[in-house]
Amino acid sequence: MSGEGELTTELPSFVDFAPLEAHGHYFGLTKHEWVPIIMSAVIIISLGLFAIIATMRLKKVPGRLQALLEIIVEGLENFTKTQMGRAAGPFIPFIGTLFLYIFAMNMIGQIPLFHSPTSNFNTTIALTLIVFFVTHYQGVKNNGVMGYLKHMAGKPIWLAPLVFPLHLMQELLSRPLSLSMRLFGNIMGEDTIIAIFIGLSPFLLGLIPVPMHLPMVFLALLGSTIQAMIFSLLASFYIAGAIGIHEEEHH
């Protein structure tokens, strides 16, 4: 229920219980429209505090928490290097942060009274725009304006009138749309199915709800991890392509 008299397949969040008018506007947004923003802020603050606390007392002989963090960092480093090769170094923090942030946003929806911000298209398109600007900024920075345009034109040069418009449409339209819609569609679908199963439980199984949605929760946990990996993988692939790493390896 996102508002009075408005039916929805979303489960309620703690924001819905705030003593605020459902259809009122607060800084231009309704209470329901604030949900993904608040959830994203909760994740950013939580991840930031966790990182600060976990790295306050680093030791040469790591404890369990430090060992876990080192495994995660090493895994993200290897993941980025696999896609970007020798150019991976400066982008490991960006790709790693992107993965952890999206992973946390996907997972938080499995906690009662929380929602996945990535089930809202505004969140996924914002993430996509960040990747979009980083990709093309790095492309121009590493190749120069003319060099990047030449890269967009492809080879052989006589096919440029055909290749350049297609490449431009791919960069400006198809890649951003597919990147944002894939993440949004999968997470929204998972959360919607779980909400439907929870809503049907009392009717199908009696007065005492049985967690018939539990198998879907496990699938959602797997899907959330995979979607975070896919988004990060494609982001690193796009950046590497803009820099020209893939062309160098091909030659």
Rank of each mutant, 00 (worst) to 15 (best):
A51V: 05
M39C: 01
L205M: 13
G63D: 15
A195H: 12
A242H: 04
S116C: 09
I52V: 12
L68A: 10
A220Q: 05
K81G: 00
I130T: 09
Q83V: 02
H115K: 10
A88G: 03
G144N: 12
L214T: 13
L221K: 04
V61S: 15
A22M: 06
E70W: 13
S116L: 07
A235G: 07
G96I: 06
F17W: 11
G85N: 06
Q83K: 08
T9M: 10
E4W: 08
T192M: 06
S2P: 11
L65N: 10
P211A: 08
F218T: 08
L20N: 07
E70C: 10
P215C: 05
M1Q: 12
I37K: 07
T135V: 05
F218P: 05
I226T: 00
T9V: 10
V61D: 15
I230D: 00
S119L: 04
G28D: 13
E70T: 09
P209G: 04
F91E: 01
I239K: 03
L168Y: 14
Y26R: 15
G189C: 03
L49N: 12
T9P: 10
I230P: 00
S174R: 15
S174H: 14
I92G: 07
Q110D: 11
F121D: 07
M107S: 13
T118G: 00
S40F: 08
M56R: 15
A153T: 09
H213M: 09
V15W: 09
G185K: 04
G3E: 11
L162N: 10
T55D: 13
F237A: 01
K81P: 03
I198K: 15
L222N: 08
E6G: 01
F14W: 15
A228Y: 00
E21R: 13
T118P: 01
H136A: 05
G185Y: 04
L159I: 14
L7C: 04
Q110Y: 09
P202Y: 10
I226V: 04
H251C: 13
L127T: 02
G139P: 07
M152E: 11
A126Q: 03
F14A: 07
A88M: 04
H115N: 08
I243T: 01
G244D: 11
P211W: 12
K59M: 09
T97R: 05
P161F: 13
L205A: 12
I230G: 00
L49K: 11
R57A: 11
I243R: 00
I130N: 02
G189A: 02
L69A: 02
T80K: 01
M181H: 13
I226S: 00
G85C: 04
H213C: 06
F103A: 03
E74N: 14
G223I: 02
M84I: 00
G24K: 11
T123H: 04
T80S: 02
H167A: 13
M1G: 08
A228R: 00
S46L: 12
